[in-house]
């Protein structure tokens, strides 16, 4: 058996992709590019999170934006009412979102396939409408404004060692690094996860649930964990989003966003972590590249989506996963023989 630990090769992979990206803000000070960089990073977090349920476990979730919204509103409310610092809000937002993930997952994971899709879709709509209607807490359609930006404590040596607080500002570059760090961290976590017992159980369930349960995999429990992990990531992404925008309104979390994230996962290649990141990069930047088209923009966007899928149905990086699984199996049997 392979050892379950954070393999050096995984760290290396993550570093080769993200270190060059980390250089971008050093050379490019254009705030628009950096903002786009950050936004794509948030999309990438969401796509990686959704990939856990859709790509690894094969559960179609059409209400993913709801978990993103829960994370964003959690941090916004914590910050506005209790002046909760960002770094504490980040895990709390993830945990609250995960709690709701379990809550919606527990009853609905029993339903199979596309029925799960519609319960999650229903949940997504319920959350958005509730945020829009609960004026007293969420500000209704006006949303919440004045959400605190993250602060850092920077050591200063002038006149003895002490710490100065340094706050994020409108400048998107620090957010870019923050998001990049989170994306890299999540990538490491997920790579480790997919090599673990849990990851294999997920793939087994996706490929053949019945066989998996016959092999003694607690399918319901494993699926529920997947749901939890995925909503945790969405909650984190929501928290960062709220801290970056400083204003959140329910219309940022509509069904179209859920669909867009799903499209990123599928376009990149289902079940492939790098695919999710790439899908986020493509679908996140494409509308920006098309901005010049003004009112033709979304028409061209739709057309490109159709063409991409027709010419590359398995997704840009798709088809590697099966290969990988075969490789692993091959290697394991070789290990067994030796």
């Amino acid at each position: 058996m392979e050892r379950i630990s954070l393999k050096k090769s995984n760290l290396f992979k993550v570093a080769t992709v993200f270190l060059p990206l980390a250089l971008i803000p050093l050379f490019d000070h254009n705030p628009y590019h950096l903002d786009l960089f950050t936004t794509v990073g948030i999309y990438a977090l969401l796509a990686m999170g959704l990939n856990v349920v859709v790509g690894f476990a094969g559960l179609l979730n059409l209400g993913y934006a709801a978990f993103f919204a829960i994370g964003a509103y959690t941090y916004a409310l914590l910050s506005l009412h209790w002046h909760c610092p960002f770094w504490l809000g980040l895990p709390i937002a993830g945990l609250v979102s995960m709690f709701f993930g379990f809550l919606i997952g527990m009853p609905s994971i029993r339903v199979r396939g596309d029925y799960l899709a519609i319960t999650t879709l229903g949940f997504g709509e319920i959350v958005r409408i509730a945020f829009n209607n609960l004026d007293a807490w969420t500000g209704g359609p006006n949303g919440l404004l004045g959400i605190a930006r993250p602060k850092l404590w920077v050591p200063s040596f002038e006149g003895g060692l002490h710490f100065e607080t340094w706050s994020f500002s409108v400048n998107p570059a620090p957010y870019g690094y923050l998001v990049l760090g989170l994306v890299a961290g999540t990538a490491c976590l997920l790579l480790r996860l997919s090599d673990s017992k849990f990851g294999r159980a997920l793939v087994a369930i996706r490929e053949d649930e019945l066989a998996a349960s016959c092999m003694g995999i607690p399918t319901l429990k494993v699926k529920l964990y997947a749901f939890g992990v995925s909503s945790f990531i969405a909650g984190i992404a929501g928290c960062v989003f709220a801290a970056k925008q400083t204003i959140i309104t329910p219309d940022s979390f509509d069904f179209v966003l859920s669909v867009l994230i799903l499209a990123m996962v599928v376009l990149g290649g289902l079940g492939n972590l790098w695919g999710a990141v790439l899908g986020a990069a493509v679908l996140g930047t494409l509308p920006e590249l098309l901005r010049e088209f003004a009112d033709y923009r979304m028409l061209v966007f739709g057309l490109i989506m159709i063409l991409m899928m027709i010419f590359r149905p398995q997704g840009i990086l798709g088809g590697q996963l099966i290969q990988r699984e075969l490789d692993v199996r091959h290697k394991e049997s070789a290990d067994g023989a030796s």
């Binding site: 705030p31 950096l34 936004t39 925008q245 219309d251 901005r291 003004a294």
Partner: peptide
């Protein structure tokens, strides 16, 4: 220089950054 914000605040922030960066 006309940009679309899709009456979505996220897109509006992107469009704003695009405008100021020009």
């Amino acid at each position: 220089l006309a940009l679309d914000d899709q009456h979505n605040p996220t897109q509006a922030v992107l469009a704003a950054n695009r405008l100021i960066s020009d």
